[in-house]
Simulated assay, not measured.
Amino acid sequence: MDHLDALENESIYIFREAHRKFKDLAMLWSIGKDSTTLLWLARKAFFGKVPFPLVHIDTGFKHPMMIAYRDRMAKEWEVDLIVGQNEEAICSGMTPEKGRFACCNALKTQGLQQLLDRRGFKGIFLGIRRDEEGSRAKERIFSPRDKNFEWNYKDQPPELWDQFNTSFGPDTHVRIHPLLSWTELDIWEYIRREEIPICPLYLSKDGKRFRSLGCVPCNFPLDSGASTVDEIIEELKVTKTPERAGRAQDHEAAYMMQKLRSLGYM
């Protein structure tokens, strides 16, 4: 068993353990490489049929290519896709021009919270990784939130020797992170091995590509000649550029991402 096999087995175990312990589960599908890898693993864990719905929060600012990819793959993989929006915020004219923190909180965090509350989901799978961004490094595999979906990053249960705490109170909302131990390079090597279809925005065009996908006004391509998965893997082995260098919210005020995530951001 190689490194990717070990990661795959752990993720599949987490999926099955969560499905055994919790009712009313869903999975966030942001259309990016991580959540698409997560969806691939969910299909493996449950023998091709994902037993819970997928949730995509559409801010109204996503790349059209992301939406086209989402709809194509949802149909091909026969998943139950729920698209949610904070319609009140969108109708009131919320945009990044009103501040990226306010926009992300309204369109993403509150949009997700509204859908979770409306549909009664008690737990949700997310494709975050510890190496992706500082606040995510503080996460646990099974991460409790309060009844308002807020995260107390200073009070997280220990998970020593892969012993996961799955016993929480009735008002607890649980975020479940099967990819937490993976790295960006692991994701791409697994995509190559499994031949997972990815959004074309990740592949270089005219000397630029996206390493992380978000909303058009706040998401910028980086210089890169990597136009195939093999070339992306070789690029990652030598690059010094942070993965989220093209995400504007990561360059805002100190601890912005941690503040957003404490409020329930993905």
Rank of each mutant, 00 (worst) to 15 (best):
L116Q: 03
R119W: 10
G207N: 02
W40T: 15
C215V: 00
P221W: 03
H19F: 14
D146K: 07
F142I: 05
L185P: 03
A253M: 12
L180R: 12
Y202C: 01
A254K: 13
G134D: 15
R119S: 07
Y255E: 13
K154D: 15
I57T: 12
N105W: 06
Q113I: 15
G169C: 02
L4G: 02
G127L: 08
E76F: 02
C91L: 15
I14R: 07
F47I: 10
I31A: 07
E8Q: 14
P200L: 12
F168E: 09
I90H: 05
D250L: 11
K259S: 08
E195Q: 15
Y69P: 01
M257F: 07
H56C: 11
Y190V: 01
F46Q: 09
V238F: 12
W29L: 14
N152I: 03
D71L: 14
I196N: 06
I124Y: 09
W161Q: 13
I67C: 06
R261P: 00
R192D: 11
H3D: 10
S262V: 05
E194N: 11
L4D: 04
S181T: 14
A68L: 07
A89D: 08
G246C: 11
I232H: 07
L28P: 00
L115S: 09
R261V: 05
Y265L: 10
D162L: 10
D186R: 07
Q163D: 11
H63N: 12
C103M: 08
Q85V: 06
L185W: 06
D80E: 14
L263R: 10
L160C: 06
K33I: 01
E194I: 04
V79M: 02
D117V: 01
C218R: 01
R261W: 03
K98Y: 05
Q258H: 13
R211F: 05
A106Q: 08
T109P: 00
K147R: 10
V216K: 12
A254W: 08
F142W: 08
S11F: 04
S11K: 05
C103F: 09
C199W: 03
P221Q: 02
G123S: 15
D155V: 10
Y153C: 06
R209F: 00
S92Y: 05
L38M: 15
E132W: 07
L185T: 14
L4Q: 12
E194W: 04
A245H: 13
V83C: 09
R209N: 10
P197C: 07
F52R: 06
Q163G: 06
P96G: 07
G214W: 00
N152T: 04
R209G: 03
I67W: 03
V50A: 08
A18K: 02
E235Q: 12
G207E: 00
R175T: 11
G225H: 06
L7R: 08
R136H: 09
L112S: 13
F47T: 13
F22N: 09
Y202F: 13
Q110F: 03
E194Q: 15
Y265T: 04
V79E: 01
T59K: 05
T239H: 10
H173T: 09
L107G: 01
P96C: 08
K208D: 00
H3A: 12
L28M: 10
R192N: 08
F61N: 13
P158K: 11
I176D: 07
S204G: 09
W151S: 14
L39G: 09
